[in-house]
Amino acid sequence: MRVVRLVALGTLLHVKQFSRSQFEIATALIIPLVQATLAVYLFRAGTEPHRMLEAAIGAGMMAVWSSVLFGSGGAIQTQRWQGTLEMLMLSPRPPALLIFPITLATAVTGTYAMVATLLWGGLVYRIPLDIAHPLAFAVAVPAAILGLGMFGLLLASTFVLVPNANAVNNALEYPVWLVSGMLVPVTVLPGWTGPIGAALPTTWAARAVRESVTGAGPVWPSLGTCLAISAVCLVAGAAVMSYVERRARANATLALA
């Protein structure tokens, strides 16, 4: 219970902190709207104008991934720049428990984008919010956010080991959008991308949310797979985080590594 409280309070704190940044808010709100508009015009121009709601949802999920990728990937670096990394590591709790709320907060921030995208689609393009399974949708979105937050911990802990992690961050946005089928169905991609997509929680998260909207498939198996893969990522991320912390303490490179 104390762990849940720590994660919940930590997440709230970091969401509040992100909410103070004009850059974070404006980026989370404006860019997804541009992407959603692009998706709307592409779907209208193409042969599938009836899939507009899917386009809006897909654009929202893309924004959640961008938020997790850039926010979680640079979570440790950001703490270092702020001068708060040492304080976090001095805490008696395991480091993973202190960084996880940050990565979860990046995913929660991404939900601004999801909501904004749906509102934009409804108000500007008159896309009706005809959700096939509203209850499943209401569960799938927060569960997908939680899953991506857990995946974020693995990103945060591994990217700290990679020199120039920003380069990896910048290069990973489109590939994950692509292989996860957020806007492009995975069936049109080359076969070898299938196993990569299947191993990513983003694929199952996008699939669960899409299935809850369209009613095209059972939501729960996709959501369960998303959370199972995310839990593995969380455990792996926690192990890597402990290793990184020990190494940084031993080498006295916490603020410099």
Partner: peptide
């Protein structure tokens, strides 16, 4: 990154016709 951007839109455009 720009190369994957190209692939993303090429596959999307192909799928949507």
């Amino acid at each position: 990154a720009p190369l994957f951007q190209l692939l993303f839109f090429a596959y999307l455009g192909r799928q949507l016709g």
